[in-house]
Amino acid sequence: MVLRLACPHCGPRPVEEWMYGEVPDPPDYLTEADERDVDRGFMMSNTEGAKQERWFHAGGCRRWQTIERDTTL
């Protein structure tokens, strides 16, 4: 069964309709501005488990949505 994301407008829709938007999350221990910029530009937490994400519903309401998803499911 394909992954479905619950859209507040359209209901649960298959992931094929969506575009993933990476949200930069530089950790607090990075304090130097350049280090934070590099982290924002390239690094990823690659969370295993539940996290809040930004998804663009390209094949539906065409709105950015904040959706909580468990990356292990």
Binding site: M1, V2, L3, P14, V15, E16, Y20, E48, T71, T72
Partner: peptide, 18 residues
Amino acid sequence: IDSQPSYSYRSSYEFLSH
């Protein structure tokens, strides 16, 4: 690859048809 970042071993019919 599947477009969503994930650690899941989920298979899908959508992939088969695609």
